[in-house]
């Protein structure tokens, strides 16, 4: 079986008039099913650019990208939308929930675009919300939820279509330490259930909850290593002092 993700000599160049920005300068990377990867590196090193290409939101300037063995670097807009819908779950730093739309409806959103029936959709959205521990907040609006809860809704939305991979761009960037660990706990439990997870983070702390760390600098991979002692987020939350909320 081919690796889940296989990229070869991936290059992304942004052109601003006469001026070129080399965001990715030839990346080779392969990620297998069931991995939990953290991509690290300074700001501007090309992490998000790679994530957008992995998530079929953008196309590389050159190089190959095979997802589950099939080349998707040359797909058109509609086909990329379909892959985003069926195989990829996105989690953003700023949550990107639809405002004035209930948590349940936010989670349901990807299902609107895959032709399943409305009743199934609600059922599946409820299940996904339960997976992130928010089964009783389905009717809440984003502005009634804390940052951690909003990010969990966003994770439920990423989960709802049973994606093969979840991509998270600095998912804990806007969260405090405790909430960050709670979010990492959710990713860890999803990963234990077999979902491949790739996150971007600046923080070595957060990266230590994953199983593999990749470091970026100036559009290139400078380090790629397995994490020797993956921390257990669930256990750490237990040991933290309880908070009143």
């Amino acid at each position: 079986m081919p690796p889940l993700i296989q990229i070869k000599d991936l290059v992304k160049v942004y052109r601003l008039g006469d001026y070129e920005i080399h965001a990715l300068r030839g990346i080779d990377l392969s990620i297998d099913r069931g991995e939990f990867v953290a991509i690290m590196g300074p700001s501007g090193s090309g992490k998000s650019t790679l994530m957008h290409i992995l998530g079929c939101l953008d196309r590389p300037t050159s190089g190959r990208y095979l997802l589950e063995g099939s080349d998707i670097s040359s797909l058109d807009r509609n086909n990329r939308a379909e892959i985003r819908n069926k195989k990829i779950g996105f989690v953003f730093q700023s949550f990107n929930l639809l405002s004035r739309t209930s948590a349940l409806e936010n989670v349901e959103l990807p299902l609107l675009y895959n032709g399943s029936s409305a009743r199934d959709n609600i059922e599946r959205a409820r299940k996904a919300l339960a997976q992130v521990g928010l089964e009783d907040r389905g009717n809440s609006y984003p502005n009634q939820l804390s940052g951690g809860q909003q990010q969990r809704v966003a994770i439920a939305r990423a989960l709802v279509n049973d994606p093969t991979i979840i991509l998270a761009d600095e998912p804990t960037g806007n969260l405090d330490t405790r909430t960050s660990i709670e979010v990492m706990d959710i990713f860890q439990s999803l990963n234990r259930n077999g979902i491949t997870v790739v996150i971007i983070t600046h923080e070595a702390d957060i990266a230590s909850y994953t199983k593999r760390n990749i470091a970026f600098r100036d559009g290139k991979i400078v380090k790629d290593a397995a994490v020797t002692m993956t921390r257990n987020a669930g256990a750490e939350i237990e040991s933290l002092p309880p908070v009143e909320d």
Partner: peptide
């Protein structure tokens, strides 16, 4: 615009 981006990110096609 942002809503449109979110919808597209979760799989909405231009047509949708």
């Amino acid at each position: 615009t942002r809503e449109i981006g979110i919808r597209m990110a979760v799989g909405a096609k231009g047509r949708d």
